[in-house]
Design a protein around this nucleic acid. Structure first.
Lengths: 188, 188
DNA sequence: GTACTACCGTAGAGATGTCTATGGTTGACT
DNA sequence: AGTCAACCATAGACATCTCTACGGTAGTAC
């Protein structure tokens, strides 16, 4: 079953952020229980000895992962959407495209599973999801839907995007068409 | 971080199916890398020695899990929906309710993550998803939508249900209302 | 009571993982 | 040339996991 994990990038020196990003890769591919110090070190072409220079221990790294996911990976999409100036429905389309385009780097599915067994992850996950639902509802209100309708459409958008993301939509043929048709149903 | 895993059920003797069901619980809660022989044995109040009476090895168990998930956990929902006699839109509502009601026992999210790192799981996952998409498209065609529209609405339904499932919709207040509003948008 | 089936426990080898301790190495600055 | 900061490797104690080997037990069948 195991096919081994290759050394992805051989760097002379790795920063704390390099370790963090490599961890996100492992998290996405192997799930939370696959996040081992030795596995991440192997991926970076380093040893575990160097890990403990950057992080106190494994938990320290996992906390950093959650914080990064909440702030950067959820936050920047919202910020970009707020900045956008133009029709509200186009803003929704833009956000959907951006999420799918980041497809490969999003560990959302793995974090959802992680949240089932870990209290800290569950807190982060709930905060992020609530934020997404709230912002998505706002997006659809701006597009002219009433509060109740906006809420459910926003919720559907978030769910659909998470589903397509864990499903790897971007790697399939005609993903842009599929996304466009999702959008049409949502803003209809 | 680890809070230990309690002995859930202490049985005198366990069958192959008991091991399988316990594995599904662990899979859902800890992800694929958390599926360890000792962990499942602990949950059943047994030791790993007994595991190897029922299964050749860990891979043997994991194959059984995939087969069971594909055939039973995906299949019976489709079968129930086919059996239903009544308006096509009501059939859709029924299916959605059934999926959410089974919420707690569905390991779909964990299998999606698993599929990222394992070829066998990826095959099972793709087969199951294709079957769901195909059947869902049929459901919406029966409800009067054109092929293209039916396909995208079916896809959205599957994604939304998977999202709400990994999100634990059933454990939240007013989940029936939320589900009903999802349905209304989809069949509108 | 003997035998057989179905199941379980224990012990242990070997692999893999966390984390500590300690000692390189490399480039920038002086 | 010397020093310091930043980063990495190695070794090893200790824990956890897979899987084998082998012996034990409870129920049923005769």
């Amino acid at each position: 079953m195991e096919s081994g994990m290759a050394v992805i990038e051989k760097k002379e020196k790795a920063s704390r952020e390099d370790w963090l990003l490599a961890t996100l890769d492992v998290l996405r591919e192997r799930g939370i229980e696959g996040v081992k110090v030795v596995a991440i070190a192997r991926r970076l072409g380093l040893t575990s000895g160097s890990f403990y220079w950057h992080f106190k221990n494994l938990k320290d790294l996992l906390d950093a992962v959650l914080t990064y996911w909440e702030e950067a990976l959820t936050g920047h999409i919202i910020e970009d959407a707020i900045k956008f100036e133009g029709p509200a429905k186009e803003r929704i389309r833009l956000l959907m495209q951006q999420v799918i385009r980041e497809d490969a780097s999003r560990p959302d599915g793995a974090i959802a599973v992680w949240a089932k067994s870990d209290a800290d992850a569950a807190l982060s996950y709930k905060r992020a999801m609530d934020r997404r639902f709230e912002f998505s509802a706002w997006l659809f209100e701006q597009a002219g839907f009433g509060p109740q309708d906006a809420e459910i459409r926003g919720r559907m958008m978030v769910m659909t995007l998470m589903g397509e993301t864990t499903n790897g939509l971007k790697n399939s043929d005609g993903w842009e068409g599929i996304l466009d048709r999702h959008w049409r149903v949502l803003v209809a």
